[in-house]
């Protein structure tokens, strides 16, 4: 049997990452965490996570950059804010999950072929282009980029929605879509 070290030495942790978390909006109080586990206990999705919210908060704070950004945990956060409202130290746990998602995309470290980051990116791309969210197109694009077989699985729901007149096939662009584009470009110029 091969024995491997699973605990990291302090020198192997990414101090820049831990400082970055504290410096971004929402991450300021992460140092106040007392590891009580209220977040993990209230989280309805923690049963599916590779690290519970309590662990992710500690690991982000300590500088386990690689593990945190490759984790499924932030992507499984449904943004219900139960942890954040319950946190006795008022740590903005849900907002930290958002920051970690953004960072994981930026660094190309999000779990590949996992549907949620793909959905988030496709969605954002489409609304920036049109100014509106084309629900149907989005679902198709998502399936094509993750598992095309899902389209077959989703077909019955699609038909039921269509019968009820709840499926919008064509989404019109807004008049101000160029305005939106200019605004977003202005951001890039200043950051």
């Amino acid at each position: 049997m091969k024995v491997e070290r699973v605990i990291k030495y302090e020198a192997e942790l990414d101090k820049d990452f831990s400082q970055w978390v504290v410096s971004v909006p929402g991450g300021e109080q992460i140092r106040d965490c007392i590891q009580c586990g209220t977040c993990s206990a209230t989280c309805p999705l923690s049963i599916y996570m590779d690290y519970t919210p309590r662990k992710i908060i500690l690991m982000a704070h300590q500088g386990f950059k690689e593990e945190v950004l490759r984790s499924f945990t932030p992507w499984l956060c449904a943004s219900c804010y139960a942890c954040m409202v319950n946190c006795p130290r008022e740590i903005k746990i849900t907002e930290i999950m958002y920051i970690l998602k953004e960072k994981a995309i930026e660094e190309g470290m999000y779990p590949k072929r996992f549907p949620i980051p793909v959905l988030a990116r496709e969605f954002t791309r489409m609304i920036v282009k049109k100014g509106r969210n084309p629900e149907t197109k989005l679902i198709i694009a998502l399936a094509l980029r993750t598992n095309p077989l899902n389209l077959l699985k989703m077909a019955p729901l699609g038909l039921r929605l269509m019968k009820a007149g709840r499926l919008e096939i064509m989404t019109k662009s807004i008049k101000g879509k160029d305005q939106l584009k200019t605004m977003l470009q202005s951001l890039e110029a200043t950051t």
Binding site: A120, T124, I127, M183, L187
Partner: peptide, 21 residues
């Protein structure tokens, strides 16, 4: 002529862009 707010998904991709929209 309102635009999509980006919901919670756009917030995960880029918070600042999302706020701007």
């Amino acid at each position: 002529d309102w635009n999509c707010c980006g919901a919670t998904l756009a917030l995960a991709v880029n918070e600042l862009k999302s706020f701007t929209m």
